[in-house]
Design a protein around this nucleic acid. Structure first.
Lengths: 150, 150
DNA sequence: CACTAATTCCCACTAAGTGACACTATATTC
DNA sequence: GAATATAGTGTCACTTAGTGGGAATTAGTG
């Protein structure tokens, strides 16, 4: 399971180096085959190892096709999904439409999220993060969170 | 269970020496394997022994994935979580994104908090502490606290 | 079919991370 | 109070991760 934050850079050819500590796991699980797609509620990308993606895609495909929300989800997740393979230097190429969607500039933040990664433009991520830190109390907590002890 | 405050320094490579009195306990419990992550409501870090972290990560992972607040919690806690191992001198390396999050400078305060530690920039800690001392009464207490006896 | 642009492959350079060791100040013991 | 031990921190050398750039290949377009 993936966790942890890394600050990385996207070179001018659109390549993003996956941190070395994750490469072995990706090589073993799926021969370095991953899927890049969009997060349908934030301006960031998701990177799934291929085996995880298969599960996700199946779930999405099985959603009721008359439901507009499900359709939208499908349009985003599957519509943007891009097959990639890590190159010999452990990098993936992020296609132009994906870069544009997430407003990716040169500096990138990669966040491990267990079965996938999130990819953010660094400046955008810092803004979102600080927003959330500044006003955590203004949100209402779901019932499960009110009593959680960490 | 960890308690007590220690003033420490972060060397210029981002390494932080864990006080000797805690090292044996950490070695026994988890072979010196710990997880560093962020406190999602304060600019400070949390350091968990690996066995404690497993419990926490499980709790967070099981939160409802359609709830935005739970998602952000997950994004923070798991997104920043970094596996570390104490080196032979009992130090952990605090990665750049974590140092940046907590605004860690050279002088650090480490606070034992039973199952984990909190790691603060010393100046920031002093400021927050004084703030709390000045106005503790402005918050309303949750029901569990109203009847507690210390 | 040829030309141009985009993509991939490969190599090289730099900076960051790691491990070992050494020094210093404080605490402990006799 | 001196000698010894130990914790905390700094430093140096070595390794490796991250990134940039040129050449070769492929794809797209007129």
């Amino acid at each position: 399971m993936f966790r942890g934050a890394s600050a990385l850079s996207l070179d001018d050819k659109g390549r993003l180096g996956i941190p070395a500590k994750f490469r072995d796991a990706l090589a073993e699980r799926c021969n370095g085959q991953v899927v890049l797609t969009v997060n349908y509620r934030e301006r960031c990308l998701w990177l799934y190892p291929m085996d995880e993606w298969d599960i996700v895609e199946k779930k999405v495909a099985e959603l009721p096709s008359f439901d507009p929300t499900a359709q939208e989800l499908k349009r985003f997740l599957i519509g943007y999904a891009d097959d990639c393979e890590l190159d010999t230097a452990g990098r993936v190429r992020v296609s132009a439409p994906l870069r544009e969607f997430a407003e990716l500039g040169k500096r990138i933040v990669l966040l491990g999220q267990r079965n996938k990664f999130e990819i953010w433009d660094e400046a955008l991520w810092n803004r979102r993060r600080d927003e959330w830190l500044r006003q955590p109390q203004e949100r209402e907590l779901p019932i499960e969170l009110e009593s959680i002890s960490l």
